[in-house]
């Protein structure tokens, strides 16, 4: 009985996921038919001319999420090492709960904080590079960094705690200092779990909408000439989510090609976050073994 039920519920979940992907794929058929692979590699999005290239938005999403990880990973890992390796159990739990509370703050609140503090700070702090306004990819990335920090922290903390204390004790009894134990035993042992933390945080950053929407500038077709320059981080951009959250979704309604193009963005986002999350979960599994 229990077994049959659990099969049933797993099946429902599976059908739901397949259904969502299938729906977006089916809704976006007209745009794939018109643009082909050019839909993914095209650099111009002008919906009134029915020209749909999603690359600048894919670029925007990836860059913003990457900036978030670069900023959040050192802090998240550092905090996790501190709580997992140094703090006594009770204090560790108290701190963990506090930081996990941060994960529950609605994203629109972070977005408003971004408008209130971060945008002006970026605008003034980088004034010598002459940003056009405070709405930049960097602003969005920095805001996302705060939002994914709890994810990175709490998963890394779990990964480090799952390294057996027998190994730590052995290392200590061999004469390694505490710091040496962390760097040559705990971190290598928790590598898979730490990677999983990063990947899951990346997935969350890719999917975040409203906070990014408020500070990213929403400028279409702003693909930089060079991918290796840092200056474009101070330009406004567009992510997949900020595009989908904007007014175009309303306008696209009723225009089959345009609607298909918007649904296609949803499909791209779904596949990107899906792959990253699956990879992350896969890494997490390995660390349990």
């Amino acid at each position: 009985m229990t077994r049959a039920l659990s099969w049933l519920f797993s099946l429902i979940a599976l059908v739901a996921i397949a259904g969502v992907v299938g729906l977006f794929a089916w809704q976006s058929v007209p745009v794939w038919r018109q643009e082909g692979w050019g839909y993914l590699t095209g650099v111009k999005w002008f919906f009134r001319q029915h020209q749909f290239g999603a690359l600048p938005m894919i670029y925007g999403s990836v860059v913003v999420a990457a900036v978030a990880l670069l900023l959040a990973a050192p802090i998240g890992f550092g905090a996790a090492i501190f709580t997992a390796e140094y703090l006594p159990r009770r204090l560790r739990l108290a701190l963990k709960i506090l930081i996990e509370l941060l994960a529950g703050v609605p994203s629109v609140v972070y977005g408003l904080l971004g408008i209130l503090l971060l945008r002006d700070w970026v605008y003034d702090a980088f004034a010598r590079f002459d940003p056009l306004s405070g709405d930049t990819l960097l602003t969005a990335g920095a805001l996302l960094a705060v939002m994914v920090l709890p994810t990175i922290f709490t998963l890394s903390d779990d990964a480090l705690r799952s390294v057996s204390s027998a190994q730590r004790q052995t290392a200590r009894s061999l004469g390694l200092t505490r710091a040496e134990t962390i760097f040559s035993v705990s971190l290598p042992q928790a590598k898979a779990g730490l990677s999983a933390a990063l990947l899951l945080a990346f997935g969350r950053a890719l999917g975040e909408t409203i906070a990014v929407f408020l500070v990213v500038g929403r400028q279409d077709n702003n693909l930089p000439a060079s991918l290796f320059s840092l200056r474009p981080l101070l330009d406004p951009g567009q992510t997949l989510t900020s595009k989908l959250g904007g007014s175009e979704t309303n306008i696209a309604y009723g225009d089959p090609k345009h609607w298909a193009a918007m649904a296609g963005l949803g499909l791209i986002l779904l596949v990107m976050t899906g792959v990253v999350t699956l990879l992350g979960t896969g890494f997490g599994r390995k660390s349990d073994a």
């Binding site: 002008f46 009134r48 001319q49 408008i115 945008r119 002006d120 605008y123 056009l132 306004s133 405070g134 709405d135 500038g217 929403r218 400028q219 279409d220 077709n221 702003n222 406004p236 904007g246 007014s247």
Partner: peptide
């Protein structure tokens, strides 16, 4: 509107957002 050329600038939505962004940006 159909004859307006296609351009890509940073976009703003509602009136509050427009006013606040213009107020807080030099040369806006």
């Amino acid at each position: 509107p159909k004859d307006a050329p296609q351009v890509s600038f940073p976009e703003v939505g509602g009136n509050e957002e427009t006013r606040n962004k213009v107020a807080g940006t030099r040369g806006a």
